[in-house]
C-alpha cells in the first residue's frame, strides 16, 4: 500500500535506498519544458557544507556519493509514463555532518520562457522505495502548484539516529534561485 503524505506529515522510513522521481510530458507546442530535480544536502546549520553537496544538472553526484542524479532531461521526453529525472539515494553513504536532505523541483528559465508548473502536463514529483518501487509521497505539480516555478518537495532528516521523511510542499516563484539562496 502506498503511503500518501499530506503536507507537513512525517514518516519514519526505515529504508536506505530511495529514489526521488520527477516526471512530466513534453510540450506539444512552443518552448520545451525543462524541469530539474535537485537535492540539497544540509549540515546542522541548514546550509550545504560546500558546492559538492548540491546535486543538480551541473553536479550529478554529492561529495559523499549518497545522492546521484540520473541526468538532465531538458524536454520531458526521457520516459513516456515514468520518471524523466531521478535522484537515487543511498542513506548509508551520507556524510556524518549532513543532517537533512531537501529535495526540490524547478523549471529552468521559467521566467524567460514565461512558464509555471500549471502549464506542464502530468508533472509530478515523488519519492519511492528503490527496491520495491512503492511510493511514499507524491505531488501533482500541475494541479497543486500551478502558479509556482519551483517547489521544495520534502526532506529527509535525521531524528535520534533514524531517517524520517517530511512532505513540505513549499512553493517558490523564483525557480532554482530561491532554493539555492536559501540553502547555499
Amino acid at each position: 500500500m502506498a503511503i500518501n503524505l499530506q503536507k507537513g506529515q512525517r514518516v519514519a522510513i526505515g529504508l536506505q535506498h530511495l529514489t526521488v522521481g520527477l516526471g512530466w510530458d513534453p510540450a506539444e507546442t512552443g518552448e520545451d519544458f525543462d524541469l530539474d530535480a535537485v537535492a540539497c544536502l544540509l549540515a546542522e546549520n541548514k546550509k550545504i557544507p560546500c558546492d559538492e553537496f548540491l546535486v543538480y544538472y551541473n553536479n550529478t553526484k554529492s561529495a559523499d556519493g549518497s545522492c546521484e542524479s540520473t541526468g538532465d532531461d531538458r524536454t520531458g521526453g526521457n520516459s513516456e509514463e515514468g520518471d524523466d529525472e531521478q535522484i537515487i539515494i543511498n542513506l548509508s553513504k551520507v556524510d556524518s555532518k549532513i543532517t537533512s536532505i531537501v529535495f526540490s523541483a524547478s523549471i529552468y528559465e521559467a521566467k524567460k520562457r514565461k512558464q509555471n508548473f500549471g502549464q506542464v502536463q502530468n508533472s509530478y514529483i515523488r519519492i519511492c522505495d528503490t527496491n520495491s518501487g512503492e511510493e511514499l509521497c507524491k505531488y501533482e505539480l500541475c494541479e497543486d502548484f500551478s502558479v509556482e516555478t519551483a517547489i521544495e518537495f520534502g526532506r529527509l532528516y535525521l531524528h535520534n539516529g533514524e531517517w524520517k521523511f517530511e512532505a513540505t510542499g513549499i512553493g517558490h516563484h523564483d525557480g532554482l534561485n530561491g532554493i539555492v539562496n536559501k540553502y547555499c
Binding site: 525543462d34 560546500c50 558546492d51 548540491l54 543538480y56 544538472y57 551541473n58 538532465d72 531538458r74 529552468y108 532554482l176 534561485n177 539555492v180 539562496n181 547555499c184
Partner: peptide, 15 residues
C-alpha cells in the same frame, strides 16, 4: 545568477 559561497567557489545555475 551565480551565488558566491566562499572565495573562488561559485554555484553556476546556467546549463
Amino acid at each position: 545568477m551565480p551565488i558566491n559561497l566562499q572565495k573562488g567557489q561559485t554555484i553556476n545555475l546556467e546549463k
